[in-house]
């Protein structure tokens, strides 16, 4: 996987500090699964969080705080098996070069964990038609003031020119698209805010599948409402 477009440092910092919406966290954690470089950056930002924590003066705890916690620990100790056994070393599978095509091999855990259990790959998604050449699958269990969904765009289809009322983040999972910013392939993230205008076009012979999260409250000023409006009268 040859990732060229990454989330901005400010977005990775917000992920590390734990202030992103669940929808944005989902996009970031899925991208990070595919991107060692962003994992490294987030680890550095978490180290900043640790340094900030360590650098505070602190706020005195209750006089009996340690005793209370110790008592709870003693109680747990009485039932030792509540303490988890050390985990076996993580199973790390480097993706063999032959597997590295222009698609995510299977569903990264952060994404899979928020999809219905019967969906094991992008092939299993029960797409719903949104507009000619555009299908979607909303992730309803994710907390956001905006929306989060998988989007499938047929080759040559262009999404109408649009800006972004709020934060919109797109992770490419399969295929590619091209817009004013550049060409986005599997693993790439378009981290767009404010008034970035773009008109993405699926530019290869295969379907383009992406995960799109927005944070804006439903104000119908983003990409999907524009698509939806003429077809379902929203």
């Amino acid at each position: 996987m040859n990732i060229k477009h990454h989330p901005t440092d400010e977005t990775l910092l917000a992920y590390a500090s734990g202030t992103l919406s669940q929808a944005m966290e989902l996009v970031i954690a899925t991208h990070m699964t595919l991107c060692p470089q962003c994992r490294e950056k987030v680890a550095e930002f978490e180290a900043c969080g640790g340094a900030m924590l360590n650098g505070t003066d602190g706020l005195a705890m209750n006089v009996d705080a340690l005793d209370q916690v110790m008592a709870m620990i003693e109680q747990e100790g009485a039932n030792e098996n509540t303490i988890p056994a050390p985990l076996a070393s993580p199973r790390r599978v480097a993706v063999a070069p032959s597997m590295r095509g222009n698609a995510v091999p299977s569903l990264p855990t952060p994404l899979a964990s928020l999809l219905p259990e019967n969906i094991l790959s992008l092939e299993d998604i029960p797409w719903r038609t949104l507009a000619p050449g555009v299908k979607h699958f909303p992730l309803k269990s994710v907390q956001t003031k905006g929306s989060v969904r998988l989007l499938k765009i047929a080759p040559g289809i262009s999404i109408p020119d649009h800006g972004h009322g709020g934060h919109e983040m797109t992770l490419l999972l399969k295929g590619s698209y091209i817009d004013d910013v550049g060409r986005f392939c599997a693993g790439d993230v378009a981290d767009l805010t404010d008034d970035t205008d773009h008109q993405p076009i699926a530019d290869t012979a295969e379907d383009c599948i992406c995960l799109i999260a927005t944070d804006a409250p439903l104000k119908f000023n983003g990409i999907l409402p524009k698509l939806l409006q003429p077809f379902i009268g929203m």
């Binding site: 990070m32 699964t33 994992r39 993580p90 199973r91 599978v93 299977s106 952060p110």
Partner: peptide, 17 residues
Amino acid sequence: RKHIEVDDADPTLIVDE
């Protein structure tokens, strides 16, 4: 809710070679 994190045991995890 849980903070969504990378799973170190994820078979799709891409490791820097």
